[in-house]
Simulated assay, not measured.
Amino acid sequence: MCYSAQVRANYQKLVRQYGAIMSIEEFAKLYSFDPAKARPKTPKGMDDAFAKGDTPAEREVWEAISAWNTEAATKWEKELFQQTTRLNNAQRALESKPTKKAQEDARIAANKIAIAREKLSDLRRTEPLPRDERIFPGVYAPVMVMENDRRVIKPMRYQCRLPGWNEATERQYPGTYNARRDKLEKSWRELFGYQHGLIVADVFFENVEDAEGKNQILAFTPRSGEPMLIACLWSRSPGKDGQPDLLSFAAITDDPEPEVADAGHDRTVINIKPEHIDAWLNPDPSNLGALHAIFDDKRHPYYEHRIAA
């Protein structure tokens, strides 16, 4: 299962490269600042793209993101002060009378200080890094869909909430960030043939066991250097109590490419050809065979792998 991916998170580049338009309304709903609610989990690369927005609507979204960043900075600065105080107290205690408690306090405080400093550094950093575009289940990403015969970019959460589900149901089935091809006409029948999407990604990550049975994370990258056009299904779940609707998606996986199987994993995302984008995004539910034909004609770049950091 593709548990993580490095996506093209900059919506402006997706708009230019794929002739799409952006659903600014959906982005504005997602980022709307409310100190009483939790910040949405979004990749920094998607956030920072709005800093270069040209329109008033984009600038309003950036103002909301900046408000979230200010709140986060305040939180991490407070954490940094508290843990620095804790570390200083522990070090003084160790100088006078070493104890296990003081040693543990010093260790924990040092770890939390490092985390707080990294979080603050990321909030202030303007130089992009590859990890800024990495997503995990529960994190939002720009997804391309078809709407009124136009390619549209919308922000969606990576972990699909199927039609009729609620949060409780979702917790019982946490693996719905991927949709197996052999289950599309069963478990995913309400979405397959109806609500199709596409994410553009450069790397996908998998958990595999090494020769000693220990888990390791492998990063798979097309040797061709071309971005992957990963076929997805998506769903809109009505919001409750005035909250916006939840847009969520799952990446479709198929039997593994030989080199992926050799590396120890049993699934590979479906990387469709560029000429099939519109047919995939505008499906005919009465002709599912045509959709499977797109899968059968998918791209087969050699996926090189490395141990991820």
Rank of each mutant, 00 (worst) to 15 (best):
R171L: 12
Y31Q: 06
C232E: 01
F81T: 12
R236M: 11
P285K: 06
A36F: 10
M1N: 06
R86C: 08
R299K: 15
D202Y: 11
V152Y: 03
E185H: 03
Q159V: 11
R8N: 12
M156Y: 07
E79S: 14
A110R: 13
A49V: 08
F204M: 11
A231G: 02
R92M: 13
L246W: 11
F33V: 05
A141I: 02
C232Q: 03
H276W: 09
T99S: 14
Y303G: 02
W68T: 00
E77Q: 14
E63T: 10
Q216H: 11
R299N: 12
P163E: 04
N89L: 14
L233Q: 01
R180P: 03
D210M: 03
R134H: 04
H196W: 07
P130A: 04
G242D: 10
A290W: 05
D202V: 05
S187R: 15
P222G: 05
D202A: 10
W165T: 05
P155Q: 06
L288P: 00
R39V: 03
D210R: 06
A93F: 01
A279G: 06
N282K: 11
D105L: 08
L229N: 00
R236H: 07
I21P: 09
I21N: 05
K37S: 09
Q17G: 04
A309I: 14
A114V: 10
R181I: 14
E25P: 00
A73G: 09
A168I: 12
F295H: 09
R181F: 05
H265P: 01
R92S: 09
L162K: 15
R180K: 13
R117E: 15
R180S: 08
L162Q: 13
L123W: 04
Y3N: 14
T126S: 13
L191Y: 08
K41Y: 09
G193S: 06
M228T: 03
I65W: 03
P155T: 04
T169A: 15
P56M: 07
I24E: 07
D297C: 06
A290K: 13
